[in-house]
Design a protein around this nucleic acid. Sequence first.
DNA 1: GCCCGGGATGGTGACGATCACATGATGGTG
DNA 2: CACCATCATGTGATCGTCACCATCCCGGGC
Lengths: 332, 332
Amino acid sequence: MSRASSMSDVARVAGVSAQTVSRVLSDHPNVGAATRARVRAAVEQTGYRRNRLARALVTGRSRTIGVVTHETDFYSASAILLGIQTAARASGYFVSTATTPSLSLDAIATAVERLMDQGVDGLVLAVPVREDVSLGDLTHDLPTVVVDGMRSSATEVVAVDQVEAGRVATDHLLGLGHDTVWHVAGPDTWNDAMGRTSGWRAALEDAGRLVPPVLYGDWTPASGHRNGTILGRMPEVTAVFVASDEMAFGVIRALAELGRRVPEDVSVVGMDDIALAPYAAPPLTTVRQPFRDMGRRAVEHVLALVTDPETVHEPEVVLPRLVERSSTAPRG
Amino acid sequence: MSRASSMSDVARVAGVSAQTVSRVLSDHPNVGAATRARVRAAVEQTGYRRNRLARALVTGRSRTIGVVTHETDFYSASAILLGIQTAARASGYFVSTATTPSLSLDAIATAVERLMDQGVDGLVLAVPVREDVSLGDLTHDLPTVVVDGMRSSATEVVAVDQVEAGRVATDHLLGLGHDTVWHVAGPDTWNDAMGRTSGWRAALEDAGRLVPPVLYGDWTPASGHRNGTILGRMPEVTAVFVASDEMAFGVIRALAELGRRVPEDVSVVGMDDIALAPYAAPPLTTVRQPFRDMGRRAVEHVLALVTDPETVHEPEVVLPRLVERSSTAPRG
DNA sequence: GCCCGGGATGGTGACGATCACATGATGGTG
DNA sequence: CACCATCATGTGATCGTCACCATCCCGGGC
């Protein structure tokens, strides 16, 4: 084809002005029924498709939202992205993604700028944004929702109650009779990870238990394995709360290598409830995170902000749910 | 801010015409050094950013590539997407994603149309496209590369040699002394899955072994578990080639539940080498797929097509590599 | 001294759509 | 029957950029 047909082509075929075509396509009320039908037919006949670029240029709206994610293949990231995709599509929006190789403010800012160059209407940051960062500076006041962030801050955040999540996991283990619970945490650059850690600590303190030192991982199963090797060598460790299922797989593997059985010798609770969690050995007790749902809600909220910048975020707190499987057992 | 600054704003500040600003920004040669500097300063001062939409409108290039993926959280999909993202960014391109809830031709066509509305310059289809489908009809002759497709077809495809992959896995098991190898395949709608199955069958036939009936899964661990329950009940099954690691987790779990040990009683080979594969119980022997690399190559090829539609695809065949871990052992 | 080539710049008109406003027809009302 | 509200449609300007062509100026060759 030499050139895609434009509105004036359609207008010519239908014998009306381009403006009328525009009205028909935008479902404007004030168009005669006969004209409308004629235009529809002409559109069909010419195979016309509205040019979104031209449209975006003049309206200032691209109907695209930008998503910044960390450049990893973690389950959580892809699940959130999936929720975002689905919700955006349902609302007739497009999704443009920018990954950032690092979590430094610079790298995130670069990703954001790339998306702004794209002309996105709103932004979902699926990366941790520290509380001391002014979101306005970062995003130049584009409607933005952060998926990993402190709910206490002024920024718009969609998140489950991570403190509660840490607490639920820990309480479950304490309830099984364990004296205390060890913790393999996520990187302290992530707000979600820190939230889980505080919940864990709070639960232990509330129960008057000893708070063991925190071990840190980087979300990868390999880092779980490293930490599992340490924990497995300490006979007093009977219960571990791991801040992600992927790390939990590593921990369990390391324990197995050291001859410590799960759950007979050590109980392990993960976090996320990834698709493979039920198929771990043993099936992993974990705290479910509604990733898709978070993505969906992030989109809904961004779109609300896009439509009306004055929208106030009502943080609906989603309570995480413990999914009990076989990696936890009463203290032997 | 009331309105982002435009080229004419910058031009006014620099005391030149908008055209000159455009030339400076496009690194056109014919601009005086002094003028160039002045314009650069003005750009800096006004915080000007070129409007990509307007640019795309007039040039007909959006510097965006569209990706169609299946709406799932499978590791493979997110890893490929990751490779695409990285490569696109490196080339200064943007990525817009559209997920399709089903693999029907209609659903895929809808996703493609959404992306075309977006004005993408090229397309990567990370979904299976049947050989009898005219890619041209689907994509209206937009530069397109398919990631899951038959290499034999006329379409532009980036893929590893799946037949070889199936063969490698099967040969490995036969080499360990197993009489034959059972197979849990992926859905027969996927070309990759079918390739693996043919490789498996060919390896068995070449070795003059009995070819057992194929069991089919849907890539999910749950489907692996279902099939594992069947296989585990048959004492004659000593070796299984599973078409994805995620299903392999399910198979292994089912075998464990039935009291069959891996690898002592049954050897299992997976496919993909997902991040969790080394942390399965036991660590999974599998065939590595270079997902990120495939994504990267898909982008490179699409961009070549965008630049020069006459580009001919040289299918560099990537040979898959067996990664031996502990889920396979010589026949006991 | 004249002419020519080419580097540096500016002006104009698309690109494809929408918006604000203008126009003409219609019909109901006092 | 004059008047105005309402609906249906057209006109012109505009969004921000780049392609194309015109213009100006300078230096060099003959």
